[in-house]
Amino acid sequence: MASNGSTGRPLSPHLQVYRFSLLMALSILHRATGIALYLGTLIVVWWLVAVASGPAALAFWQMVFLNPLGLLVLFGYTWALFHHMMGGIRHLVWDTGARLDVASAKSTAMFSTIAAFALTILVWIVAFMVR
């Protein structure tokens, strides 16, 4: 068993020993989207500070984000938010002790993945409609 040098305490097995599955992907993605959202708050602060600063600052923010590449980043941010939110709700349900069996975990995994995409698409349809 792998051990942790100085203390000799055991280490748990890491990613490479597991077979790939949707459940595992979602577990990793919850952490990955959490980290992405952490960095994504910079887009949010930048937006708020730009509006507070005036038309020129907002125009610069819009120049950066309102183009195909910038919009891709924003799509990514909103998808990460919805995906992490759905995954977070799953975690909160698990915290109550419910839905912990494999079959439930699989069905909520499918549901939350699809819901995250659906919510993202819905929000951007609205954004383009009111434009």
Binding site: L81, L92, A127
Partner: peptide, 22 residues
């Protein structure tokens, strides 16, 4: 828990205003 409704509200706000003038 707090973030669920708040994040939804925020994203809606962003979607409604994103391309609008200052």
């Amino acid at each position: 828990i707090a973030n669920v409704p708040l994040a939804v509200a925020f994203v809606i706000l962003l979607a409604l205003t994103i391309g609008k003038p200052h």
